[in-house]
């Protein structure tokens, strides 16, 4: 059984514990925090979490705190390379300043996607993807 340890969820995430991680959720949210615990379903405990939003070349953080995230909502878990992080050419701004732009962007995308889905449904018979939780 020893030889199988690299081929388990626990085997691949063990070196990420206590590190700063990026978590992308199925609704498109991006969280950053310190990974404290996880299991075979990729349920995660994230400490000192912030939600980070982006617009053009700016980003902003909103403090969210301590989370247990249910695994099915996780898209991706990324190890943040602290050296690379310093080179990121984005500037940080106030969350209240950026949030309206971010929200408008999401709304516009949602609207366009709905129109496109309707056209594909009418003309090609492709059904729309299943609403909430599929929007990432």
């Amino acid at each position: 059984m020893d030889s199988l340890i690299p081929f388990t969820t626990s085997g691949s995430l063990v070196d990420c514990v206590d590190r700063k991680m990026l978590v992308i959720l199925r609704d498109g949210r991006k969280l950053q925090g310190v990974l404290r615990s996880y299991d075979q379903f990729a349920n995660l405990v994230l400490e000192d979490t912030v939600e980070r939003i982006y617009h053009k070349n700016a980003f902003a953080d909103f403090p969210r705190g301590l989370f247990l995230i249910r695994g099915e909502n996780v898209v991706l878990l990324g190890e943040i390379d602290l050296d690379k992080e310093d080179e990121v050419p984005l500037r940080q701004v106030d969350y209240p300043t950026l949030e309206p732009y971010h929200r408008a962007e999401i709304e516009a995308k949602k609207e366009r996607d709905e129109v496109k889905a309707q056209i594909l449904f009418d003309e090609q018979g492709y059904s729309k993807e299943g609403g909430e939780g599929d929007g990432y």
Binding site: Y54, V75, L77, K84
Partner: peptide, 16 residues
């Protein structure tokens, strides 16, 4: 995908 710029290694959930 600017949020991925600082990421070197990652874990992807099979279901996505």
């Amino acid at each position: 995908h600017p949020h991925m710029m600082a990421v070197k290694n990652c874990f992807i959930r099979g279901s996505v």
